[in-house]
Amino acid sequence: MHDLDLSKTFKKHSETRENRILEAKKIKENGDRIAGIFCSFAPLEILDAAKINVINLCSTKDENIINSEVDLPKNLCPLIKSSYRSIISGNSDSLPLCDIVIGETTCDGKKKMYELLGELKDMHIMQLPQGTDRSYSYIMWEKEVRLLIETLEEKFNVKITEKELRKTTSVRNKLKDLYGELLELSKLDPPAITGLNAYKILERYKFISDLEEEYNQLEELINQIKKEYNEGKRPINNKAKRILITGCPLSGVLDKILNTIENNNGVVVCFENCEGIKPIRNIIDENSDDIVKSIATQYLNIGCSIMTPNYKRMELLEELVEEFKVDAVIEVLLQTCHPYSVEARAVKKLSTTVGLPYMAIETDYSNSNIGQIRTRIAAFMEIL
Results as ranks from 00 to 15, higher is better:
N238K: 10
N263E: 10
P235L: 07
Y229W: 12
K256M: 04
G232D: 12
C248Y: 06
G252V: 09
L244K: 08
L244S: 09
N264T: 06
C248D: 15
Y229F: 11
N259G: 14
D255M: 15
D255R: 15
K227L: 14
E228D: 14
Y229N: 07
A240Y: 04
R234P: 09
N238L: 02
N264R: 03
G232P: 13
L258T: 10
I257L: 13
N238R: 01
L254Y: 04
N263C: 11
R242I: 01
I257F: 05
I243G: 00
I245V: 15
I261C: 07
I245C: 06
I257Y: 08
P235C: 07
T260L: 08
L250I: 07
E228V: 03
P249Y: 12
E231Y: 13
P249T: 13
T246G: 11
K239W: 06
I257C: 10
N265E: 13
R234Q: 09
I245F: 12
I257R: 02
L254P: 14
C248A: 14
R242W: 01
D255F: 15
G252C: 00
R242D: 01
T246H: 07
E262S: 00
L250Q: 09
E262H: 01
K227M: 11
R242T: 00
N264V: 09
N263D: 12
K256N: 09
L254E: 12
R242L: 01
T246M: 04
P249L: 13
E228W: 04
P249E: 04
N263M: 08
C248T: 14
C248F: 09
K241A: 05
P235N: 07
V253I: 15
G232A: 10
I245P: 06
I261N: 04
V253Q: 00
L254N: 03
N264D: 10
K227V: 12
G232W: 08
I261W: 06
D255S: 15
K239E: 10
P249G: 07
N237C: 11
N264Y: 11
L244I: 15
R242C: 05
N259T: 13
R234F: 06
L244R: 06
G232E: 08
P249W: 08
G232N: 03
T246A: 10
I261M: 05
E231L: 14
R234V: 05
